[in-house]
Amino acid sequence: MANINITFPDGSVKQFESGVTPLQIAESLSPQLARDILAASVNDKEWDITRPVNEDASIRLFKWDDPEGKHAFWHSSAHLLAEALQDLFPGVKFGIGPAIENGFYYDIDPGENTITSADFPRIEKRMLELAQQKNPIVRADISKADALKLFGDRGEEYKCELISELEDGHITTYTQGSFTDLCRGPHIATTAPIKAVKVTSLAGAYWRGDEKRSQLVRVYGITFPKKKMLDEYLVLLEEAKKRDHRKLGKEMELFAFSQ
């Protein structure tokens, strides 16, 4: 197998066999880095750490402290949320599920199901159970016809609408456990790093932001690689709410008593 040159951010170059993955590159540098790596970029393109690199490339490896690492972690967590919802609420249909600045959301059509904040603990419990299965998150290239059949057979009309607008030859799916999603990625390698889960809120959202289209339920959540990080985040959230209430209280007083 031919060798390729991999250039690192500091300008250094190392040779690897063609087909090497960012995870294997990390392993060659340090076992700790290999444990911490969540995502990569190859020639400035977002890249899964288990996806082969077949030509000379510049590479960057991202951990939790990097925005790109958090993005891949939370994007993968959105898929985990969808898998849990699929298990708990049979018949739900899926819109989109991106990472956002703090966490992620998934837009779903609940069908005959009603989802309320009372369901949050069991959604969180199911997400953690699935995460602990340490399922690999597997990327696959798929033809447009096969994608339309795959999602059409499941009655996923929202996904089929998105697929119909994509160019053939550029469509990928990601599968973990029993859940397959239409997605560009990148994702973390397995569900194993997801150790703490919080479903934070629900909101209404029109499909593709169009009030003439179906109204979906947007489920928001956040995840962390350590329980302690979630605890600290929830404390900060509570403090921010208190500050907002104090500020609001002063403003209301100001408006109530100003002449």
Rank of each mutant, 00 (worst) to 15 (best):
E238Y: 10
A240P: 02
T175L: 09
G249A: 15
E253Q: 13
T173G: 06
G249I: 11
V235G: 01
T223Q: 05
T223N: 11
K241E: 14
A192I: 11
H245I: 15
E238D: 15
T172I: 09
R208D: 00
V199W: 07
L248N: 14
D231N: 14
Y206G: 00
K250D: 13
I222S: 00
T191R: 04
R213H: 13
L182D: 06
K227M: 13
K198H: 12
V199A: 00
G185Q: 08
A192P: 04
E251D: 10
Y206P: 00
T200E: 01
S214T: 10
T223D: 00
K228C: 03
K226G: 05
E238Q: 11
C183W: 03
L234S: 05
P193E: 05
D210L: 06
V199L: 04
V235R: 04
D210K: 13
E232N: 10
K226Q: 15
G221C: 07
F224R: 02
K227I: 11
H187F: 06
R218L: 09
F224A: 08
V219G: 05
C183D: 10
A240C: 12
R243T: 12
K226P: 03
P193Y: 12
C183R: 05
S178A: 13
T172N: 13
I194P: 02
C183H: 08
G185N: 07
R243G: 07
S178G: 12
K242M: 13
Y206D: 01
Y233C: 01
V199I: 14
A192G: 06
Y206S: 02
Q215W: 14
G249W: 10
G177D: 09
L230E: 06
V219H: 05
K228M: 11
Q176H: 15
A205S: 09
T180Y: 02
G185E: 05
I222G: 06
Y174N: 03
C183Q: 09
D210S: 01
M252G: 13
A205V: 03
S201Y: 07
E251C: 04
K212A: 11
L182I: 11
I188R: 04
L216V: 02
V235S: 01
L182S: 04
P186L: 03
P193S: 08
G185P: 03
A203T: 02
L248Q: 14
K241N: 06
K227A: 15
Y206N: 05
Y233D: 07
T190K: 02
G249Q: 15
L182H: 01
A240V: 09
T180G: 08
L202W: 07
T173A: 04
A205L: 02
T173N: 07
Y206A: 02
Y174I: 07
G177N: 08
L237W: 14
